[in-house]
């Protein structure tokens, strides 16, 4: 089983984590095609992805820049960097 470093409590087995996928911002006031692409398409090519992880035992959310080819974690990203607003 793989291991992953939880930024809060260190190295843990991967089964303790939920992988939520790439960090994405919903497009606002866009055409239907753009919206459909957001809903249904995901980046699948090997690359450095900014992705969201959830460590269930601690309830801790974090964001990683991870190379999906080598499994190498490049950076822990501050959640403030990926915040977005929704129409109010």
């Amino acid at each position: 089983m793989k291991l992953l470093d939880c930024p809060l409590i260190g190295r843990r087995p991967i089964s303790e984590f939920d992988y939520v996928g790439e960090v994405r911002k919903p497009p606002v006031d866009c055409d239907t095609a753009t919206w459909a692409a957001f809903v249904f398409n995901r980046q699948g090519a090997p690359s450095v992805l900014r992705e969201r992880w959830y460590h269930r035992p601690t309830g801790y959310w974090f964001i990683l820049d991870r190379d999906t080819l080598t499994d190498e974690v490049k950076a822990i990203v501050d959640a403030r960097e990926v915040r977005y607003d929704i129409p109010a």
């Binding site: 939920d18 969201r52 309830g59 959310w61 959640a79 990926v82 915040r83 607003d85 929704i86």
Partner: peptide
């Protein structure tokens, strides 16, 4: 619970 907590973080 996860969706709620993720949204808290997304929207700050």
């Amino acid at each position: 619970f996860r969706i709620l907590s993720q949204t808290v973080m997304d929207l700050g």
